[in-house]
């Protein structure tokens, strides 16, 4: 171990690391090449399903030039029966990603929550496939203009113990409705 500080030894350290990292990089590239198409396909299917849940008939194209004043709308899809908006309002814990379907007359067709980190048993009910969750999401169907929870003078009954989540969902729906209004 006398030679630890010599140039040769330093070069050996560098080369060893270089070899290891290159081998790992090549291996990862290989795995990525195999799995990437599969993952992309799965993601596309998932989006498709989320859109079809709120927009009967699915979508034909994604619209990129939409006007959004709220900053909550991340994606817009257009179909024969209306639009589907991916909106990301901030909930109790983190942002909620949800899909809002709006028909051509500006009425909500349905909402579905794609991902969230709300408190289980309280806010998470909004996304649950239980009767309470269905009832909560069902309230938005047919609404237009703007929605808010009863505590704020609106018509939506908030989930028990989860006013913040309920408000977040309302703000997401409002963002989608406003964006739909801009699309005409």
């Amino acid at each position: 171990m006398k030679t630890e500080t010599t140039a040769k030894y330093v070069l050996r350290l560098a080369l060893t690391l270089l070899i290891i990292t290159s081998v790992v990089a090549v291996a990862l590239a290989g795995v990525n090449a195999i799995t990437a198409p599969k993952i992309a396909q799965l993601n596309a299917e998932k989006t498709q399903q989320a859109i079809e849940a709120v927009l009967p008939g699915g979508f034909d194209q994604e619209i990129t030039d939409f006007t959004d004043d709220t900053g909550l709308v991340s994606k817009v899809y257009a179909g024969a029966n209306g639009y589907a908006f991916e909106v990301t309002p901030s909930g109790f814990d983190n942002t909620i990603t949800m899909m809002v379907g709006v028909d051509l007359e500006g009425k909500v067709l349905g909402i579905s929550i794609v991902s969230h980190t709300e408190t289980s048993g309280l806010g998470a009910v909004a996304a649950a496939s239980t009767a309470a969750g269905e009832a909560f999401r069902g309230q938005f169907v047919g609404k237009s203009g703007s929605v808010s929870v009863t505590k704020d003078g609106g018509e939506v009954d908030a989930l028990t113990g989860a006013t913040i989540t309920s408000r977040a969902v309302c703000s997401g729906v409002n963002a989608a409705l406003a964006c739909a209004g801009n699309l005409g």
Binding site: Y9, R12, L13, T21, V24, I34, T35
Partner: peptide, 26 residues
């Protein structure tokens, strides 16, 4: 070499983890 062993280990581990992550996703 022992001076760079932690860096080497982590690289190897991260490689395997990423492989597993990608496989699970797919």
């Amino acid at each position: 070499p022992s001076q760079i062993r932690i860096a080497a280990y982590i690289t190897i581990i991260a490689g395997f983890v990423t492989v597993v992550d990608l496989l699970l996703k797919a």
